[in-house]
């Protein structure tokens, strides 16, 4: 099993100083992400899941603890190494897509791939996310779902091992949300990428291989899902 661990966090804590009070966003978290799995981190707002995701993705530093990617600690990384880690190992999908408004769909994807050495074929990825005929459109000319597809294509095309998705359906309506989840699953299978989704939406957990539940900065339960359902069958 341990050989199959992609990412591992040990005793991870993140404390914020708010005036005279110290708030722990993440407390003593131990977590392992397995290569090729589809994991969902579930938790209500303020449970620390976004903070955890940011630390795992090398976007933020923990106050305590360690994170290992393929057995190598990323915590002692300097800025340059951390940048390389984000560039080569991780792909992010954000709740609000965060596309560059002045670049077309294709250019937004190219923005990510042109700094990677082993990027996937952009047109193929855009076909996969269903935007083959919309690639020359600007974000302002697209719906929310389409924009999120671009964001996913951008994360996937980098050919990183790990896809970290922060509330990817949070800004979308139900039908579009389901389609996006289906797409993420397809990418998980087709490109053999490890996908980690964080969400407060409990039914999404039903499609995951594993569900990690968080509350008040702590992991309260990790459940293996023997029989994940198809995204199309999720209802909320």
């Amino acid at each position: 099993m341990s050989e199959n661990i992609l990412l591992k966090a040990e005793n991870l804590s993140k404390l914020y100083q708010m005036g005279e009070v110290t708030v722990a966003a993440v407390k003593n978290v131990d977590i392992e992400i397995i290569n090729g799995e589809f994991a969902v981190i579930l938790g209500p707002s303020g449970s620390g899941k976004s903070t955890l995701l940011n630390i795992l993705g090398g976007m933020d530093q923990p106050t305590e603890g360690n994170v290992y990617m393929n057995g190598e600690s990323i915590i002692g990384f300097n800025d340059k190494k951390l940048t390389a880690y984000r560039r080569d190992k991780v792909g992010f999908v954000f709740q609000f897509y965060n596309l560059m408004g002045t670049l077309t769909a294709r250019e937004n994807v190219e923005l990510a791939t042109e700094i990677c050495e082993d990027a996937l074929d952009i047109d193929e990825v855009l076909e996969t996310v269903g935007l083959g005929d919309r690639k020359d459109h600007f974000p302002s000319q697209m719906s929310g779902g389409e924009q999120q597809r671009v964001a996913i294509a951008r994360a996937v095309a980098k050919n990183a091992d790990l896809l970290l998705c922060d509330e990817p359906t949070g800004a979308l309506d139900f039908e579009t949300g389901i389609k996006i989840l289906g797409l993420l699953k397809e990418i998980n299978v087709k490109y053999n990428k490890t996908v980690v989704i964080i969400t407060h939406n409990v039914p999404i957990g039903e499609m995951a291989d594993r569900v990690i539940k968080m509350r008040s900065g702590e992991i309260i339960e990790i459940t293996e899902n023997k029989d994940p359902i198809e995204p199309e069958r999720i209802v909320w």
Partner: peptide, 12 residues
């Protein structure tokens, strides 16, 4: 946007 670029792996 700068956050996204950094997230994508662009250096300072």
């Amino acid at each position: 946007g700068i956050g996204v670029l950094k997230g994508l792996g662009y250096g300072n």
